[in-house]
Design a protein around this nucleic acid. Structure first.
Lengths: 195, 195
DNA sequence: GTCTATAGTTAGATAGAC
DNA sequence: GTCTATCTAACTATAGAC
């Protein structure tokens, strides 16, 4: 059978479960999401889930790596642009284009990190930090290529602004927050001098 | 008895439960916090909790109003300063002084809002938005008094920066994020022209 | 590999003694 | 008003048939 040939680590069902976990956990949060919720979304019978993921935490970890994968897809596309400033602008535009989802459920990685950071066991909090660092590092590289003197500080400011505007848009249930802050960030990028 | 004279709405035990709820929910999150956890922290027997709060959601709502009360205490103190710019600087200094707590558990109101926004019942999410709006409105008034043309946009930027730096400090477990971003915000305030 | 039935555990809520 | 004992529901995880 095709699945068994590829092994369970990469089977089609496992992939469906990962994607369902990412989506459902984004909407409901990790604590409120049951294995049954994910199984239903992935159209896999509940009992069968445990063949692919031994515990619920493994499914949450899978949701995190799914978000990391999505992020790498985006930065990979942006890397094709030659101007680092254009790459950063593309990033902001991608954020703003997701404004309705952000206003309803927040940033997928940011809100999951908030939830996992309330734990003191399991190490999933560290994993969430790693995904956020992935974004910070990529942004920092763009500022570095722009010849900015403190690329790491600027990366903190830009990613922090994104997490902040996502949280406010979510708490106020207003996607307009993402538009206003997004426009401000684009203008800010333009105001930075090239090296 | 003293308590019964004042009624259960304002008894000493009820107040202890409210404060315990605010603290424990900040550290563990609303979902992972059990009634027993709060009862223990407040030194009240579990069964007795239900005399003061009929459901767990009422306790979470109590935690939210406790945060609102803390916020009003802070802005009340800052309101004694005559210069609105000094008030905003005082706010930022208060945020930075809480950097260790923020790096471990995030902003009490912000992280609770994130968690409650994953629900679609109960209306606690709206309540969380209200508390955040309390802060936004106060900040907006300061920018208005400073004669700034778009005080609401500036308030979004400042409060968004706070929520963003708290989330990043928390996810990276690094209070230094609060110091760096706090210093940047102070310099930004200084760069704004007076009217 | 797939799926059903169920064991085992935890926590929210209530009844009722004091 | 206070507190103990307990009911009930929900969910994770496993055993085992197919």
């Amino acid at each position: 059978m095709k699945e068994s040939a590829r092994g369970r680590a990469s089977s089609a069902k496992r992939q469906r479960l990962m994607r369902a976990a990412a989506e459902v956990v984004h909407r409901q949060g990790a604590e409120r999401t049951t294995i049954a919720d994910i199984a239903r979304a992935a159209e896999v019978p509940v009992g069968n889930v445990y063949y692919y993921f031994k515990t619920k935490d493994e499914l949450v970890a899978a949701a995190l790596s799914e978000h990391a994968r999505q992020l790498e897809l985006l930065t990979g596309r942006l890397d094709r642009l030659t101007d680092p400033r254009a790459r950063l602008k593309g990033l902001i535009e991608a954020w703003v284009s997701q404004r309705d989802l952000a206003a309803r459920y927040g940033c997928p990685t940011g809100t999951l990190a908030v939830e996992l950071d309330k734990r003191d066991e399991g190490g999933l909090d560290v994993e969430a930090g790693r995904v956020i660092r992935l974004l910070l590092t990529w942004v920092e590289r763009q500022f570095h290529e722009l010849g900015q003197p403190e690329p790491d500080g600027l990366a903190l400011t830009l990613v922090g602004a994104y997490q902040g505007m996502s949280l406010l848009a979510n708490a106020l249930r207003d996607p307009g927050v993402m538009e206003r802050e997004g426009a401000r960030l684009l203008a800010w990028l333009d105001s930075l001098e090239a090296a």
